[in-house]
Design a protein around this nucleic acid. Structure first.
Lengths: 344, 344
DNA sequence: CTGTTAGCGCGTTCAA
DNA sequence: TTGAACGCGCTAACAG
């Protein structure tokens, strides 16, 4: 099935010019006599010739390619973010490699290697290892070695001991806004559901939640901070535990919208109405949040800005420019119908 | 920001061997004295050296890379399918380029070019241009030129005049099963909602629907075949039109699950209960179908098999083997709670 | 078992 | 305005 490759030599020969002239036409880097140019273009079109970007990249030591490492392309948070980043990178002349690790740490290593070998100009790192609150020493070493060769930007993550550029959502303020909303709605018993201990975004959200509650003089029952996961199933699981409690919270903040969906499902199934009997809020503002009944009040991730900023920082790094070490992207509260004034 | 590249020459020099020997330990293609090997490995590790796969691919004329062209990575059908295909390709030693065209035909051209230039070994084509019932002549020419250089597999699509290998879902049987289910549930007034005219999968589904209905001796009111789109919004829109009809269908088949979700939302909002007042079924069995209340009866796409088959066919083509010109992947009916026996 | 060499396809000197 | 020649990093073929 080998198809013979047409090269600039073939084009050159057929056009009675040198390969260098063909190259000039291709790149537009130098003047070529219009007549000659036209002749060459005709031959190129005739053979449907495309230059080999491998050879070009080899020469330039730049592939105009950015790699994305992400844990799960099926999770709407990541797919949305990646899409925004990709679109913007394309505008800037970069194509992208999407590396979906499927939440598998081994795959992260493989892909990291692969991206280096493929000579990407930069890497955007999302989730996975950089989401652990306690950094694994070995992983840190690995990424540091990668960073010696290729600039890397972490999105919503960090690794202790790794001096990477970071772009992140302001999750603290997001949680703060949610708590304040619920408190304004007269809720005093508020819980936090879902997430995974040891994952930095969860830990950060939980800590922020506890702090804000404390500042408001509100007590958090430890039974109200449970859950283990980021998907709908884990939301269902945690909600069913909630049902057995003698004293239930009147409102819950969920680690993300998927968890909120799971929680709402189970509560509804067992006869509790959202928001009438219990208020539920999420985080991320995924596409579904507006459509899942009753419409989920949540915190918008500002996907556009997050994606573009990450790319901007990375491209600056690629070009040897200075860049902010840490950029924090603001969030906004999205009010829908999953929470309500508490009247008791 | 240029980081100087370590090459096998540097490694060779420092290990007091020739570049060829370094290459041998890298590839494992020939024997090297263990002691020498160890010395080389040490130097490689010391410098954290990784071979440049660009150079390697240039030499081998094979990049061990597969490109995916897809219209929308945010659509769960595509993201799920791509994920399955990608995972399987990885097992076979191929990394993948994901090219998300964002439903933009220009981007399809760009990415097609880009993949050829990047010397991918093969291309999996999903959606977009190959989904048009009537093929655009120009697009056909373009893809034919690509196919002269790189093997291409179409998934759930086709182009008249383009002799491509195709792997597709058995959408006809899927629709047939849905109609039969509804008829067995005593429904006689059945509609088809959503989809876009001129998109082959829609046209195919609609035609199959009409044929099966005819064979059952059932009449389809043309007011019951409406809609324009594949997302939740379009489902909402079409459902609101349904509400104004004097005579409404007692059951509707939706072009996909997202449309079904939109339809259910609006019907519910206006006081019609699903499935009590009207039965609604979808297509694709996306992740959400089981979770969106009341749980959507649908047709499973068999993502694993679809993805793996596509990759298998493509890899066969890459290796110059014969492959089935068209492979049809079976579907299965997934029964949930969005339809019900009609009792009037 | 190891070294030398050539060439994959391209773009950029330098020289004409 | 054009051409000749080199080298990007790697590996296969050939010698030794």
């Amino acid at each position: 099935m080998k198809k013979e490759n047409v090269t600039i030599y073939d084009i050159a020969k057929e056009s009675n010019v040198s390969p260098a002239t063909v190259s000039r036409v291709l790149t537009g880097n130098a003047k070529v006599r219009p007549k000659t140019m036209q002749r060459i273009i005709d031959v190129i079109e005739k053979h449907n010739f495309r230059p080999n970007s491998l050879a070009r990249s080899l020469l330039h030591k730049s592939s105009k390619t950015i790699g994305f490492i992400l844990p799960d392309i099926n999770h709407p948070f990541f797919s949305t973010l990646v899409q925004k980043g990709e679109a913007y990178a394309l505008e800037l002349g970069y194509t992208t490699f999407l590396c979906n690790t499927m939440n598998n740490s081994e795959n992260e290593s493989k892909y990291l290697q692969s991206l280096v070998e493929k000579q990407v100009d930069g890497i955007i790192y999302l989730g996975g290892r950089i989401n652990a609150t306690d950094t694994d020493e070995q992983y840190a070493e690995e990424i540091k070695k990668v960073m010696e060769r290729v600039p890397v930007v972490f999105v919503n993550g960090q690794m202790t001991g790794v001096d990477a550029h970071i772009v992140r959502t302001n999750e603290e303020i997001g949680i703060e806004k949610l708590v304040e909303l619920l408190v304004n709605l007269n809720h005093k018993k508020i819980g936090f559901l879902g997430g995974v201990e040891g994952i930095s975004s969860t830990d950060l959200k939980k800590n922020t939640f506890l702090n804000v509650m404390k500042n408001k003089g509100l007590v958090v029952n430890s039974d109200w901070m449970i859950g283990d996961g980021f998907n709908i199933e884990s939301g269902e699981e945690v909600a069913s535990k909630l049902l057995y409690l003698k004293e239930r919270p009147t409102a819950v903040i969920c680690a993300n919208d998927l968890v909120a969906i799971g929680v709402i499902r189970v509560l509804t199934k067992f006869g509790l109405k959202v928001p009438d009997d219990i208020s539920v809020v999420g985080f991320d503002d995924i596409y579904l949040a507006q459509y899942f009944p009753p419409g989920i009040t949540t915190v918008n991730q500002n996907y556009d800005q997050l994606g573009q900023t990450a790319i901007n920082v990375l491209v600056d790094l690629i070009n040897g420019k200075e860049a902010e070490k840490e950029t924090v992207v603001p969030t906004s509260l999205i009010l829908r119908d999953s929470c309500k004034f508490y009247t008791k």
